[in-house]
């Protein structure tokens, strides 16, 4: 385990964290503003991944594929919002969990019917297949670098949007105190439709970008949903800044756990025990992080509500 390896893993963790952030940003705003838990957010991620992979494959343009995926996913999200989620705003969290779990079941079957039950290949854009020599000893895949760049750019854009635009101000007002915002004349319903669409776009972007380095398959939305929920709880529900910090934390902890824990355990424990314990601890790491944060700060790192 040398410095180069560590640096490489940290970059990977950062990339994963940024993708988690794209997912968590929409989730946390929807949760913060409308007090609505939307499990189907993971399905939007899946939709983005599938559409981008298929369009890329047939058209050859990765950029075009990502844009198509985003637009298509926004339309799908609008449909879901209109048919299901909009009716759940006034209901309790349990009803929201149940109904959006129903949406997941439908979405998974739909994807299976359209694209088949097996995982599909999402090609890496041809121009980005090679490595970039970051340091003398560290070649790093060009595609992963682009992922990092896009992730950071989107995070910056979201920061500017939330903190320096009128819409962002309305969004923040809605997240910190909805009834007060309504009282002040904010059309929360319209803000929410905007946020829902924005969240869908970000989820689709994350799915489209993760496709070439992950597996595009049914159930991918459910798999990433849980880390995304962990992120918004750690960050403080409703806080975009919190989601950003927490996503990077979770990304780094998760990646570092998988990369560093097994070799470290092998150094101090008997091999068989280390082989058992390593992956377990790595998988558990983000949940331990969440439990620790909540013990110290019960409303997350950056509570959005006063």
């Amino acid at each position: 385990m040398d410095a180069i390896f560590i640096f490489e893993q940290l970059l990977n963790g950062l990339g994963y964290g940024l993708m988690l952030f794209l997912l968590a940003a929409g989730l946390t705003l929807v949760f913060g503003i409308m007090d609505t838990m939307n499990l189907a957010h993971g399905s939007l991620y899946m939709a983005g991944a599938y559409i981008a992979a298929k369009v890329h494959e047939s058209s050859g343009s990765f950029l075009g594929a990502v844009l198509v995926a985003i637009v298509a996913t926004i339309l799908i999200a609008a449909l879901i919002e209109w048919l299901v989620v909009r009716r759940l705003y006034s209901r309790d969290h349990l009803a929201q969990v149940l109904a959006t779990f129903g949406v997941i079941l439908i979405a998974d079957d739909l994807v299976k019917a359209i694209w088949g039950p097996s995982p599909i290949m999402a090609p890496t854009p041809a121009a980005l297949t090679g490595p970039v020599q970051l340091l003398a000893e560290l070649p790093y895949p060009a595609y992963r670098l682009v992922l990092l760049g896009v992730g950071l750019a989107v995070a910056l854009g979201l920061y500017l949007l939330v903190n320096h635009t009128r819409m962002g101000m309305l969004v923040r007002a809605g997240a910190s105190n909805r009834s007060m915002a309504e009282f002040m004349g904010v059309r929360v319903g319209r803000v929410f439709s905007f946020v829902f669409a924005l969240g869908a776009a970000l989820a689709a972007l994350a799915g489209a970008l993760m496709g070439p380095i992950g597996a595009v398959q049914i159930g991918m939305g459910e798999a990433i949903l849980i880390p995304a929920l962990v992120v918004i709880v750690i960050g403080g529900i409703g806080s975009v800044r919190g989601a950003f910090v927490a996503a990077l934390l979770v990304g780094l902890v998760d990646t570092a756990g998988r990369a560093f824990l097994p070799p470290m355990l092998r150094a101090v424990l008997p091999p068989s025990l280390a082989a058992d314990l390593g992956p377990a601890l790595a998988g558990i790491a983000m949940y331990v992080l969440m439990a620790a944060v909540l013990t110290l700060k019960p409303a997350g790192l950056f509570p959005a509500r006063a």
């Binding site: 838990m37 969290h93 929920l229 058992d276 390593g278 998988g283 558990i284 331990v288």
Partner: peptide, 22 residues
């Protein structure tokens, strides 16, 4: 929601524990 998430987190821990028990 925090209760819901913490119970979920513990179940996930158990899940990964089982996965690792070769």
């Amino acid at each position: 929601v925090y209760f819901l998430m913490i119970t979920l987190a513990f179940a996930q821990m158990l899940y990964y524990l089982a996965v690792s028990l070769r």
